[in-house]
Design a protein around this nucleic acid. Structure first.
Length: 872
RNA sequence: GGAUCUUUAGCUCAGUUGGUUAGAGCGCUUCCUUGACAUGGAAGAGGUCGUUGGUUCGAAUCCAAUAGGAUCCACCA
């Protein structure tokens, strides 16, 4: 069969993925083998996979494929998240573009549109996962709004409510005025920016209510909330304001009379030392208000415009209102100063342009403290191991120890609707159905109204490792017993609180067991300038386009080779190109081997050195890989394989066994070479599944079911350091002689004569040395001819002569340089050995090593000196 | 304000319990195209491991301080 010049992934990848699917290799059912379970971090259903996903999915696939080849029953569950707020926002936008206002739709109509949208776009991520080669069990696809999953979320809500962990109440929460919903604390992202601090003066009145003609000046960033002020607060120890006890101030624009109150909370050194208190719109003010029993005046609507209660700029957006208020204050002479001020504002995670508004609102909350305890222990005790180790432990612990109650209700429609039913009088019952609620309340069903809100997306995804196996809806079923706890969770460090910590809580609460043994955090993928990938920067590449241009294996290679565990990685298409070159290298090695004509030679009593050496290298790497995988050092594992294949196999081994032009190769060497090639493909398969499967099949005709994908790795075998050392020496010697040829400007085609003088056992490597250095003759332990040029490797001297006269001056220079270096080295070693503390304190093997270094250096110096002398 | 991470070759990074002459990829330099591959081959140059102290026989590695970079957390308007 004619093999093409270069490897073309597109023709290969789809074919093999379909084959694996047809063979049901990715489908898992409980059996007698140990399980290796991974649940995919479900991407947003309407999203596309970005480079962060690509990294995560690749890591998972590597782990899963390796486990599958190591005797495990590998099960990787794919799925997607309904992503309540993100999806709803997109559906609302889509409707707006069609001229439909969400407010004009009923809940049912809206949900119909949303499901339509989900069906239309939800498939994209799955096709991307497929294209990337992920070996997921497609029979287990789970969506967080699937029937059973929906029921599980409701069941858990009711359970936690019955346990007294969920409650409903009015609290200060974070409000997203664009999405018009409450958010959890975690969904608020703070950004530093320059703000303005306005100094505003309020007229003062004495305890009798008479105008004093004096003013108190406060400092505020948010003048538009002035109309919600219900007090002015100063520090009780602040002498500037001590005389104001019992006084009141008049709030500008609305002329509301508010008390001057005293509280240690106020920092006299900040601003003017006087604080306006707006309990409805600031968490600190809210707390002050509770303490001092202040009234609450809510001056904002849910869309961020000023409400009727403001009495000024009513209906105007808060930022525009701010300008109007400032203008008005200035006009009235009450604005007495402005200063720029570095501040922090909270933005909505899902609407990154929207400033979150602290607001008092009646919401549902989950008490976190009780759930946090077991989740903390699970990680602290080492039961769950986090990789990379200690880095996230402190963060995790701090969050759990200081965790606040979780606001779980959202004023949205896309999601699991809260199972609370209200009677007309406002009393309510929490139950799975209206009927049950009615029974609990002792009221007719007809009058009940279900809470319109839905639950936070994370309130469903925290059940993911359990409910993908129906562990909530069918507790104790065969799947959950077999697959839970899962083996490893691979995810981004950015969702450690949103998801990881909460999954551990849910796991401990509902399965009384950790949800996973290991957590592997990948870093964030940035562009090569180190910037975050974002749509607005246009630096976020399209995965399918990359796969089109490079092939999935190259994409996987490119992202893995650059991905140190836990550290951010700078994504550069150059590394994908490197992956493509690697594909091509392997492809051409295949072409070389396939081009050989194998012939029975009969006389092969012993395996050639090249074969014995490469066998040892394979064993060595096989065991290195094992420890790298155990520590999740995947990019290192890939580098190890890259170098094994490119350098040791292609550059050394294949060149060593390669027959002369149009010469046959011994059939035993040929078969061993094919065998080596298969082992290499086997080890590389988890990283680059398509190419390796293709090569595996091209190397040798395969029977039914003989696929690399399900091949089992051979066990780790011990290595022979003598052969490995011999191989390393041979490589060094070849390089040194080639270097000498280069420096002496010997043409590649010119043959040299080579003298070898040394004590090492050189017989078996001599033929390889001759072949690889372009030597016509090799003389062993014979005095070289005059005019030969020497190089020293270890204590072996290689001398060469070429057709043209060689420059011994150049050689002398080189030998002298070498000698100087060795003398300096010997110096440092002898200094060490001359130190009696070293000899008495260091480990004996270390001292022994130094002695050997000393002996080697002495021998080498002697050889160098002799050679230099011979040149005189 | 608290905490964590990070600083090693021009660039991006390895360097696992302290112990060969600190490694890789990319980039760079020189040479090489009719026999697997120029998406290639052969070879080479390039680092006093941020700085300063300390512990030690011995420090890129451990400790302290300091400087630069990054991230997370926190209710000073």
């Amino acid at each position: 069969m004619e093999l093409s010049k270069n490897y073309t992934p597109s023709q290969v990848e789809d074919k093999w993925y379909q084959h694996w699917i047809d063979k049901k290799y990715f489908i898992s059912q409980p059996d007698g083998r140990p399980a290796f379970t991974v649940v995919i971090p479900p991407p947003n259903v309407t999203g596309v996979l970005h480079m962060g996903h690509t990294l995560n999915e690749t890591v998972q696939d590597i782990l899963v494929r390796k486990a599958r080849m190591n005797g495990y029953n590998a099960c990787w569950v794919p799925g997607s998240d309904h992503a309540s707020i993100a999806t709803e926002a997109r559906v609302v936008n889509m409707l707006k573009e069609q001229g439909i206002d969400k407010a004009s739709l009923t809940r049912e109509e809206f949900l119909n549109y949303a499901f339509e949208w989900k069906d239309k776009y939800g498939g994209i991520i799955y096709s991307q996962i497929r294209k990337l080669g992920c070996s997921v069990d497609w029979d287990r696809v789970t969506f967080t709004m699937d029937d059973h999953y929906y029921k599980a979320v409701i069941k858990v809500f009711i359970d936690l409510y019955d346990k007294g962990l969920i409650y409903r109440g009015a609290r200060m929460i974070n409000w997203d005025p664009k999405a018009k919903t409450a958010l959890s604390d975690e969904e608020v992202e703070y950004k530093e920016l320059q703000g303005t601090l306005y100094h505003v003066r309020y007229p003062l009145y004495d305890p009798a209510g008479a105008a004093t003609g004096e003013y108190i000046t406060i400092a505020t960033q948010r003048p538009e909330t002035i109309m919600g002020d219900t007090a002015i607060c100063v520090n009780p120890s602040d002498e500037r304001y001590a005389h104001l006890k019992g006084f009141t101030a008049s709030v500008p624009l609305v002329n509301r009379s508010v008390p001057i109150i005293f509280d240690e909370y106020v920092d006299p050194a900040f601003g003017t030392g006087a604080l306006k208190v707006t309990p409805a719109h600031d968490i600190n003010d809210y707390n002050l208000g509770l303490k001092h029993n202040l009234p609450i005046v809510d001056t904002l609507n849910d869309d961020g415009t000023l409400s009727a209660a403001a009495g000024f700029a009513v209906g105007v957006d808060r930022f525009k209102a701010r300008k109007m208020v400032v203008e008005e204050l200035r006009k009235q002479g009450l604005l007495v100063g402005e200063e720029t001020y570095a501040t922090r504002l909270g933005y909505s995670q899902r609407n990154p342009d929207t400033v979150v508004e602290p607001r008092i609102s009646t919401q549902w909350f989950l008490k976190m403290q009780e759930l946090a305890g077991p989740a903390l222990t699970a990680v602290d005790s080492g039961d769950i191991k986090i990789h990379p180790g200690d880095r996230f432990l402190a963060t995790y612990r701090y969050w759990l120890e200081n965790v606040k109650d979780w606001c779980i209700s959202r004023q949205l429609w896309w999601g699991q609707q809260i199972p609370a039913f209200y009677a007309p009088d406002g009393t309510f019952a929490v139950a799975a159905t209206a009927e049950e609620a009615a029974a609990r309340l002792g009221l007719p069903v007809t009058g009940l109204r279900q809470d319109p809100d839905v639950l936070d997306t994370w309130f469903s995804s925290w059940l993911w490792p359990i409910e993908v196996f129906n562990g909530i809806t069918q507790p104790g079923n065969a799947d959950i017993k077999y697959y839970y706890p899962t083996s490893v969770l691979v995810t981004g460090q950015d969702i450690i609180f949103f998801w990881v910590a909460r999954m551990i809580m849910a796991g401990m609460e509902y399965e009384h067991q950790k949800p996973f043994n290991d957590v592997y955090f990948t870093g964030m993928v940035r562009d090569k300038q180190g910037r975050k990938m974002s749509k607005s920067l246009g630096n976020s590449p399209d995965l399918l386009d990359l796969i089109d241009r490079y092939g999935a294996d190259s994409v996987r290679f490119g992202i893995m080779i650059a991905a140190p565990a836990g550290n951010d990685l700078l994504f550069d298409e150059a590394s994908l190109e490197q992956g493509r070159f690697f594909n091509n290298k392997i492809w051409n090695a295949l072409k070389l081997v396939k081009g050989w004509e194998a012939r029975q030679t009969g006389s092969s009593a012993e395996e050639p050195f090249a074969v014995r050496w490469f066998d040892q290298r394979l064993r060595e790497v096989r065991s290195e890989l094992e420890s790298q995988f155990a520590d999740f050092r995947l990019s290192e594992a890939l580098k190890t394989l890259y170098s094994l294949i490119w350098d040791d196999f292609c550059s050394w081994y294949l060149e060593w066994v390669k027959p002369g032009y149009e010469q046959p190769i011994s059939s035993s060497v040929y078969q061993t070479t094919v065998h080596f090639f298969e082992r290499l493909m086997e080890l590389l398969h988890p990283f680059m599944p398509f190419l390796t499967e293709e090569i595996y099949h091209l190397l040798h005709p395969r029977g039914e079911g003989d696929d690399l994908c399900i091949l089992q790795w051979a066990p780790v075998q011990s290595t022979d350091p003598a052969i490995l050392g011999q191989g390393a020496f041979l490589k060094n010697a070849i390089s040194a002689i080639r270097d000498a040829r280069n420096k002496q400007q010997v043409k590649p085609k010119d043959l040299i004569r080579l003298w070898v003088q040394g004590s090492a056992h050189l017989d078996e490597i001599l033929p390889l040395l001759q072949k690889q250095t372009g030597s016509e003759y090799v003389y062993l332990n014979i005095e070289p001819e005059a005019g030969a040029v020497s190089v020293v490797v270890g204590t072996t001297v290689f001398s060469l002569k070429a057709p043209h006269t060689l420059d011994t001056g150049l050689q002398r220079e080189q030998l002298q340089k070498d000698l100087d270096y060795q003398r300096r080295f010997l110096d440092s070693v002898e200094k060490k050995l001359g130190n009696r503390f070293f000899v008495s304190n260091a480990r004996p093997d270390v001292v022994e090593l130094e002695r050997k270094k000393q002996a080697d250096a002495l021998a080498k110096i002697k050889t160098l000196e002799e050679n230099l002398q011979a040149l005189e």
